[in-house]
Design a protein around this nucleic acid. Structure first.
Lengths: 117, 117
DNA sequence: TTGATATATGATCAGATATTCATACAGCAG
DNA sequence: CTGCTGTATGAATATCTGATCATATATCAA
């Protein structure tokens, strides 16, 4: 990857080594960035935010976001696959909910951070 | 957008209305999801995480991530554009830093959330 | 000035992603 | 069983994203 030779590499090698020592492990990095990516889409963020308050079915979410039910279903599959949401069947209707309510804290904190700029 | 017809829409209309009332505004939604998206790439997440500890130049980051300096520069431009990082020039070297240290809390919290699954 | 270093930037392209469309499936009513 | 509703899923398409390459810029040194 890195075929450039740069003086900083020699001068700042200790800094790079320290950073490597404090770096997140590959699995952790992947996990965290995947979680962020899940909330990095406006549609999915709204889905998660809504499901934090109350469970909703695919049709409700489609009405809320004003997109097709198929599109919502695809997004829900992503969120389901990564364990962020789960569902409960009642007849033909599937009610979705957020598994870990602490996601609310994450979104609130993000709201604080972006409000400053 | 929504040309499907579904009975839930009538039955759960109050639920959808409530969700709409509690929904994040368009600007807030965009802002938060953009912040999440910034940390939703493993490379950028590692950059931000490293810069939270100490300022580093492009070359250092390239060595840390083992990618080209050009790739790092492009990522830094994104982070700079959205105000997450800033730089300081010293000769020909640009030292980058994270503007809002509270980003550490966000990443820590995300780490807790994904550790459970 | 010239040259070297560190970084920025634009163009391009491959891969990822999201929506749409069509279809399939599960549960219920009849 | 048949038909209907709500949802899932696969394929195709269009868009977005990230890396690479080439080139440009800024600072310093000689």
């Amino acid at each position: 990857m890195n075929n450039d030779k740069c003086g900083c590499r020699i001068v700042h090698q200790d800094k790079v080594d320290q950073a490597k020592a404090h770096d997140l492990g590959p699995a952790t990095t992947e996990g965290i960035s995947t979680l962020f990516k899940a909330c990095g889409d406006p549609g999915r963020l709204r889905i998660v935010y809504a499901l934090l308050r109350q469970e909703m079915c695919v049709c409700d979410l489609a009405a809320l976001l004003d997109v097709s039910e198929s599109a919502v279903s695809h997004q829900l599959r992503l969120l389901r696959t990564m364990g962020l949401v789960a569902n409960r069947r009642e007849g033909t209707v599937l009610y979705y909910r957020v598994v870990d309510k602490r996601l609310a804290q994450l979104i609130d904190l993000a709201g604080l951070l972006q409000a400053r700029e």
